[in-house]
C-alpha cells in the first residue's frame, strides 16, 4: 500500500470527477500525505481479526412483497434536468 501507486488522474477519472491541472497537483499532494498517514494501520497484526461491517449487527432484514404507492410521473421527473417523451435523457450513449 504505497502511495507511489496513487495516480490521481486515473482515480479521478474512475470517480468521474474532472480536475484542473492545478487541482490535480494540489489534491495529489494532499492525498499523498493522507495515504501516507493511513499507512500506520500496517503496524497492527490483523491476520486473525474478523472485519466489522456494522458495529451494531442485525441480520435477515426483509420486507413483505407488497406493492406500495410511489411517485407520480410528474413528481418523479420534477427534479430532472432534461426530459423528453417522459424519459430522463442524456446525450446519446454510444456502445
Amino acid at each position: 500500500m504505497s502511495d507511489d501507486a496513487f495516480d490521481i488522474h486515473y482515480v479521478a477519472n474512475l470517480a468521474r470527477i474532472e480536475l484542473s491541472q492545478e487541482e490535480e497537483a494540489r489534491m495529489g499532494a494532499q492525498l499523498g500525505d493522507i495515504l501516507g498517514y493511513v499507512e500506520k494501520l500496517k503496524e497492527l497484526d490483523v491476520s486473525d481479526v474478523e472485519p466489522t461491517a456494522h458495529a451494531y449487527p442485525v441480520k435477515n432484514v426483509t420486507r413483505p412483497d407488497e406493492v406500495r404507492p410511489g411517485l407520480s410521473h410528474e413528481e418523479a421527473l420534477a427534479n430532472s434536468p432534461r426530459v423528453v417523451n417522459g424519459l430522463i435523457t442524456v446525450p446519446k450513449i454510444v456502445e
Binding site: 496513487f6 490521481i8 482515480v11 479521478a12 474512475l14 470517480a15 468521474r16 470527477i17 474532472e18 480536475l19 487541482e23 489534491m27 494532499q30 492525498l31 493522507i34 495515504l35
Partner: peptide, 19 residues
C-alpha cells in the same frame, strides 16, 4: 458536473475512497 458541482473536500474524499 461532478468536477464543478462538488467542493474541494468532497472531491478529495471521493477520490481517496475510490482509490
Amino acid at each position: 458536473t461532478r468536477g464543478q458541482g462538488f467542493g474541494a473536500e468532497v472531491k478529495r474524499r471521493i477520490i481517496m475512497g475510490t482509490y
